[in-house]
């Protein structure tokens, strides 16, 4: 097998560095989104009407379906454009973070250039597809 020498890492901003940074910052963003969702839920009477498990489901994806099985009397405040935007933001950060992580793991075990390029394209397609149906689910629920 013909092997190419690895190119030395570039200095400054380039794709791999930006994704390294994005992975960390999106982790913080997901923490903030989850904390915001928990605080809002507690203000919207979650303490009396929700279990911790239901609160966690809501924190990781603020979708009205996640409160449908709780004792919340009026679910209207848990719907609407604000929570849809929060859900789409969570989906964006989680999807990009997760699929880039998956790519990172795969590339640690794969050395052929064409397979790596193929996988990069495949993961990008999966990301676009899953984001599209995820946004569809958020907007229709």
């Amino acid at each position: 097998m013909k092997t190419n020498p690895r190119t030395a890492p570039q200095r400054g901003f380039h794709f791999d560095y930006l994704m390294w940074l994005f992975t960390r910052l999106s982790a913080l963003a997901m923490y903030l989104l989850a904390i915001a969702a928990i605080l809002a839920a507690l203000l919207m009477s979650a303490r009396q009407n929700m279990t911790v498990a239901d609160l966690m489901r809501w924190a990781f994806m603020p979708n009205p379906n996640h409160v449908a099985n709780t004792n919340i009397p009026d679910i209207e405040a848990w719907k609407g454009i604000f929570w849809q935007v929060m859900g789409i933001l969570m989906l964006f950060f989680a999807g990009a973070h997760g699929l880039h992580g998956l790519l990172n793991v795969l590339e640690d075990y794969i050395s052929r250039t064409w397979v790596r390029n193929f996988l990069r394209g495949l993961v990008l397609l999966v990301w676009v597809f899953m984001s599209a149906i995820g946004i569809y689910v958020i907007l229709t629920s």
Binding site: G95, G98, L99, G101, L102, V105, I133, G134, Y136, V137
Partner: peptide, 16 residues
């Protein structure tokens, strides 16, 4: 991380 990717992908697919 791989477990979460698996779960979230299944969950989005199932919800859809």
């Amino acid at each position: 991380g791989l477990g979460i990717v698996l779960f979230v992908a299944l969950h989005i697919l199932a919800s859809f």
